[in-house]
Structures are given as C-alpha cells and as structure tokens.
Design a protein around this nucleic acid. Structure first.
Lengths: 228, 228
DNA sequence: CGCTCTATTGATAAACCTCAAATACAGTGG
DNA sequence: CCACTGTATTTGAGGTTTATCAATAGAGCG
C-alpha cells in the first residue's frame, strides 16, 4: 500500500505542464534500489541528483565512532542530493533505501540545462530545500532544548505524517523501521527509546512489534510532543 | 575592519554579469538596521527576502520557555529568508542585527520575476541553500553525538571562519558577542560555556573579555574540535 | 560612586547514556 | 512442527556529563 500521492505544493513539477515535466523526467534514468541498498554515500563525489518516485530513503551521517545520525527520511515526490546540481562537491550524507525504492537519477548538467530552460523547476526545488531548512532548524532546536520524551513523540508524528498508513488499530509507519533507527531519528539511544515507548504502550497509546510501531492514540502523542 | 569581501563561489551574483546584477539589486530597497534591531520576526508573514551587504545578522528561534536557539549567523554576501521567494508562509526564525547592518530587501514578486529572467540567479541561491542544509546537518550531528567541549570549539571556529579578524594577539570575532549568545550558538548553557573557555584561557589558547573572544592558538582549538 | 548588565564560580541534582545481560522474535532447515 | 540461530528488543544497575540554581565578582556608564 504505497503512499504515492505527492503533495502538489511541494512537488518539483508544480506549475510545470505535463509535456515539459515528461521532458525533464526523460532526461533522467530510472533506477531501482533494493531494501538496504545504498544510493549514494557520504564523502563520495556528488555527481547526480535524485527524484524519489516510490519508496523511502534514509538520509544519514555516520561519524568516526560509528554513531549514525538520521538527518531525515526522504519520501516519494521529494528530491535528494540537490547539492550536486550546484557545486562540484561530495555528498554530505548517505542515502539508503528502507524498502524497495525507485528513483529517477539526473546528472548535474542535464538538470542545469533543464533549469535554464524552465526556471520554474528551480523555484520548485528551492521550495523543497526551504522546507528542509525549516525542518532541520526545528529539529535542531528540539534537540537543543526539549526532553527525549517530546523528541520521541515528535519523531513518531513526523514519520506518521510522512509515511503514515491507516490500519484497523491505528496509524502505522509504511515501512519496517527498527528501534535503533527510530531512536537515531529522534536523537536518542535505542535504550531510552525502548523504555519510553514501552511506557506509552502500557498506557495504550501505541502498539509495538518487531521493526514496527502503530500509533493508537495520536492525541496523547501530540500532547507529549507539545509539553515542555 | 569589516570583512566585506564576498566569496565568489557562494555569491548570489556568481556568473551573472554586472549590468544584470545591478538590475537585480535595483529591484530591491536598501535598508539600514541598527545594532540589536530586528529585521524580521519568527511567525510573521514572510513577504521579503534579504541580501546582506554589510554587517552580521543573528538568525534565531525562541521557544515558549524563552530558550533561544541560534540557528546561524548570516554574513555579508549571503541571503536570508529565501523561503519567502517560494511559499506564502511565515518566517521560520527571527533575524536581528548584531552590529550595524545594511541589507537589500526584495519582495517576493520582484525576485520571482528576476529568476524567470535570469535562471542563474536561482542556481546561485540554491547553492547558498545547499550550503546551509549541509551546515545544519553537521551541527545537528554534532549536537547529537559530540561533547560540549568539541561543540564549543567548533562554534568558535565557525565564527572565526565567518567573521574572523586578525589582530596582534590572534583572531577575534568581528562583532561584539556575549557569552549567552556564544553558548546558544554552541548548543550549551552560558555556565558550561564560561567554565570551558576559562579553562582554555588558563591554557593560553584564548583571550577573553566582555562580549569578546580572541583565539590565540587555533591549533589547540581545532584539536579539541576534532576529538571525540 | 552607585547602578545595571555581564560573566564567573561553586554546589547540587537529574536526565540520559553506557554497559551487561536477559528475553522475545523471525526465519530456516531438519 | 520444532529446535536452532541470529537479530531485535527489553530491562536493570551504575556512572557521567551537563543543566540548574544561587551567589559573587567584574565592567562599563552616567
């Protein structure tokens, strides 16, 4: 049950007519990535830019001690590695597929040419980038000043918002995601994360399973997210 | 001794010839902001986009408990509030001048038209946005996994890099900045910050004064920044 | 010289991480 | 269908970093 309905406001083809959009798509190459497959790796030369057609990517950074920080989850309709359009640099993070994903891959020059022909494309990409800056700033602030409880709640809400899937018990996340990844996304450890959500499960706010979480009572999670 | 030399690579007028650049500038309006003056406030409608010609802006978010998070310091040559080009939204942060600053202010429509005429402008702005995303991701990771020592060192290095000014004793920051702001920028409290830098001052790595810090031994600060 | 704003320092507390170990779960092959 | 193996998750105990609070000291300014 893939959530392939793009938000038109934050779509790179917003305000671009279908034939032009198809031209742009045809400049790229479709690629399938297997679960846990790596699309691009932090530190390698940034040559391509990707549009996510289906599936979900984990964008993460790993430091020298092996600590993984999940920068974001990238969802259908978004682009990633926009940096490669502009500067001859290296990818600042690693992208790997959480499930089976299909992306469209453009090389720098093709996309640059497309932008010169269709400036609206640049404006749309800027919109996506602005949204990411906003989200990163929010998460930075949260990590700085909020308790793990709130951050965990917010992390769950973000995932549910971006990849939520209604089931009979509540809303679950569209792809398999382990505690370690959830914890990294929330900016905490798997241990603290585990303790926190088992507390919530006892309250009946959640249902948990192996690599899976279902939010039963959104209101309660929102309340925790909102509290100091 | 203002550091008004823009880095051409990350300048919004990169690859744009002078007459076109002047056209773009003339679409805007020059504004002077007094020290501590507010340019735009978090949550208010995002109507304008700003180019910093001279001076430094503090971009910050303040939560309900009054905790200030300094998202970044914006320096000459950069733009801020790029979000207002694209979406009819509110500013995600507050910008205030740290010293006397002069900015060029564009309204959304003027800049949109300019982009449609000169797509290179969009590409340049995307470059600046990509740089900011990269920096935010770095800082997020640091806040997540590094000790306050390293973060404080990195904060000092960033400021020195962006607004450093060579003096006879070492490199000092171009504008007056108090401990509270330095601490916020490093993601810690004024107390921890104070303790840490007085330790470093005793080692002879720094000279400190009221609202002022001079880095004497960059190498030692770099070493602390680099350590786990 | 007093007033205000900024910075330092000490004592205390607590949130959170680290490490160790136990338990649950899913898939596999017998 | 069941035991087995590897992985994921939970739980506990203990320690450490870092925030919090309170109080003092210093700098600039009229």
């Amino acid at each position: 049950m893939p959530s392939t309905s793009f938000n038109t406001d934050s779509n790179i083809f917003h305000k671009i007519d279908e034939s032009a959009a198809n031209d742009i798509i045809n400049l790229g190459r479709i690629r399938e990535i297997k679960p846990k497959g790596v699309l691009f790796e932090e530190g390698t030369p940034a040559t391509h830019c990707f549009f996510i057609q289906d599936g979900h990517l984990k964008i993460s950074k790993t430091d020298m001690d092996g600590n993984e920080t999940i920068v974001r989850y990238a969802n259908p309709g978004q682009i990633t590695a926009a940096i490669s359009i502009i500067q001859q640099q290296t990818y600042p993070a690693t992208a790997s597929a959480v499930d089976s994903a299909t992306v469209i891959e453009w090389d720098k020059d093709s996309l640059l040419k497309a932008i010169h022909r269709i400036p609206q494309l640049a404006i749309n990409i800027m919109g996506l980038m602005a949204a990411r800056i906003g989200e990163l700033q929010d998460r930075y602030q949260e990590l700085n000043h909020e308790r793990t409880d709130s951050r965990i709640a917010k992390a769950l809400l973000r995932l549910v918002e971006q990849a939520g899937c209604q089931t009979k018990d509540g809303i679950t996340i569209d792809f398999a995601i382990g505690r370690q990844d959830l914890a990294s996304f929330a900016g905490t450890t798997q241990f603290t994360f585990s303790r926190t959500i088992s507390k919530w499960e006892k309250q009946g706010w959640l249902l948990t399973g192996r690599e899976q979480v279902t939010v039963v009572s959104i209101e309660d999670i929102v309340r925790v997210a909102e509290q100091t």
